[in-house]
């Protein structure tokens, strides 16, 4: 991956790029905001919202699983109800419906739509947690490196370079693989923690670099000098003077970064290295349908569409934000 460094221009400087080239319609912005709202809403409410059908394997506690289908359980994959062009791959038993649900059902007969909503919970949680820790650690490192400079800057830069010496995805794979306990024969049960750790480590270097570049710009400005001559301590200058100015660039970058991390989690899942089966993430669902791609395309494709739309929406919003805060992207 290229590591791009964005620098927020001080607000009094005119931007070089003419505005009309960068303007995207307001409508797309609202549609993406609406979509994200919908995804977050369903992710939070997945256990309580009425459409959730027989997703019993989401729950460790069997009692929570009350939403059985009244008739025969669909113990096989069924195409979505609107997919008139897709044949059911297995014969229909009894009075079980031939097509079922908005997104169809997977090999176990679970409704893919509800699984996708539960998947949203995991995918978004992983993305948000990782980027949050990434901001905390990377932001702190960047602030310190940019403000103190000299030797500290060099040391931090070298550490970042070490992490950047591996192709990003491979680094994540090693970290998750490293935490894998047990031998090959044992069933893999993986918790969410190693994945978050891996993604945090991925997100730290770019964030640190971005914050560092911005901190250098701002720490040379008059208001920092003014604060210093008034006797403000370094800690106060960093937190009260520099941090608020670095914030917009950091948050904008973090939003796009979250999209990247959600995709990265999916890639880990695609390689079979994500959370174990009962708690789905979007990536794990896409991966789970791969073997059935020939007969039951919807198992992989439906979560893929949701993942794609979510990443697209996040990217569009991030783009709009960076326009607003006039963040210039440069490859560095």
């Amino acid at each position: 991956m290229t590591d791009s460094t964005s620098v927020a221009l001080p607000h009094d400087e005119p931007t070089s790029a003419p505005k009309k080239f960068r303007r995207r319609g307001r409508v797309t912005k609202w549609i993406s905001a609406l979509w994200l709202f919908f995804i977050v809403f369903t992710a939070i409410g997945a256990s309580w919202l009425p459409y959730v059908n027989h997703s019993c394997d989401q729950f460790a506690n069997e009692d929570l699983c009350t939403t059985h289908l009244d008739t025969n359980p669909l113990l096989s994959e069924r195409p979505p109800s609107w997919a008139f062009f897709s044949d059911t791959t297995r014969p229909v038993v009894g009075d079980a419906p031939e097509r079922f649900g908005v997104f169809g059902t997977d090999t176990n007969g679970f409704d893919i739509f509800s699984r996708t909503m539960f998947g949203a919970r995991n995918s978004l949680l992983i993305g948000a947690m990782s980027i949050l820790f990434g901001i905390l650690i990377g932001g702190a490192l960047g602030l310190i490196a940019g403000y103190v400079g000299k030797r500290v800057d060099k040391v931090i830069d070298t550490i970042m370079n070490i992490f950047l010496a591996f192709p990003a995805l491979l680094l994540a794979i090693f970290i998750v693989g490293f935490f894998d306990s047990g031998t090959t024969t044992e069933a893999k049960s993986r918790s969410i923690v190693p994945i978050i750790i891996a993604l945090v480590i991925l997100s730290i270097p770019p964030l640190a670099r971005l914050v560092r570049a911005n901190t250098i710009v701002y720490s040379q400005r008059e208001f920092v000098l003014a604060a210093r001559s008034l006797g403000a301590k370094n800690g106060r200058i960093i937190l009260r003077e520099i941090l608020p100015n670095v914030m917009p660039a950091m948050v904008t970058f973090a939003i796009t970064g979250m999209a990247v991390l959600i995709v990265a989690e999916g890639a880990l899942a695609y390689l079979g290295l994500s959370v174990s089966a009962p708690t789905p993430t979007w990536g794990a669902m896409i991966f789970g349908g791969q073997a059935k791609l020939e007969t039951a395309w919807w198992i992989s494709i439906m979560p893929s569409i949701v993942l794609f739309l979510t990443v697209l929406a996040i990217n569009l919003l991030g783009d709009a934000l960076s326009e607003k805060f006039r963040i210039r992207e440069a490859i560095g």
């Binding site: 890639a267 896409i286 991966f287 020939e294 395309w297 494709i301 893929s304 697209l312 990217n315």
Partner: peptide, 22 residues
Amino acid sequence: SFGFISMPNYVLATVLGLLFTV
């Protein structure tokens, strides 16, 4: 291009695989 940047490569692989091979 924005669409392609937002499309994870495993999604693209799945879709193209479905269309071109299946």
